[in-house]
Amino acid sequence: MKDSKLLTIKGLRVEFPTRDGALVAVNNVDLEIARGEVLGIVGESGSGKTVLGLSAMGLTDQPGRITAGQVLFDGEDVTSYSEAQWQGIRGNRMAMIFQDPTSSLNPVQRVGTQMIEALQSHSDISSDAARQIIREAMVRVGINSPDERLDAYPHQFSGGMRQRVVIAIALLNEPDLIIADEPTTALDVTIQAQILRDMRRLSRDTGTALIWVSHDLGVVAQIAHRVAVMYAGRIVEQGPTEKLLKKPSHPYTQGLIASMPANAPPGERLHSIPGGLPQLSNLPIGCSFAPRCPYVSAACDILPELIPTSSEHAVRCVSPLHGKA
């Protein structure tokens, strides 16, 4: 039986063994994404957003491993897939875009060769036919005169162009799902805007679902239909982008939005969240955000569940704000 959701993550837990005990990078995460949907995952460094994205593609970094939960892709449990099984769907039905395009491309291979490889490893296609598809893919991501560019090496491209090549490769096999991890963070704001527009259009035109992982709320606001906010390995709030950003319910989401310089009068002190992230190997017993929370109470000593407040919105807080300022 096929699930109506493209990707379903249930109770996912990813641990990294360390000298100080197990570090829980992803802690009991539930997520769903439908076809054609764009989901933003927002969090600061160490929140687990990258590990979550990697684990959803069977790319959990060693020595980390999934210790609980399931990843269902198009109704099928892929959690215990072998490497060979993953090879069949990765780069084909799901693709990943990383932050640094330089390290995603092979520096000693022509860009065209790398793209042909991505196509031919998933289908028996002649090199001529592959070249045609590649040309179209390059034009689709805004690289004009693709014939000249196909014979170039990655270092001959600018940063923005390189990331476009990576995006073109991700799109080659018309995947159902793309996971993009901070894909525009290394780029200038002008190039970032171009790529955001391109991706917005591509996902609309092709129906590809997109998970966009970023620390930048402004970027996510531009592209995502829904947003999940992560803190210390857990989702603390999720909901439709506009509602979540305009009326955040979790004190952490509210704090993040208030910390943005654009949301404060110039020259005034910024709102800042006191303290820093807790150690993932030594989380507080109750709510992980409690030590930094301005609304903390005795009830926060017990870990709150992620509780739905409406059909679309959920928050992990004993006394959610419901938009109070």
């Binding site: 805007a193 606001a221 654009a262």
Partner: peptide
Amino acid sequence: EVPSLDARLSEEHALTGE
């Protein structure tokens, strides 16, 4: 081209090329 929470980027590129 600065992404903000309030306004969506226009569909048109404000700046082409690099």
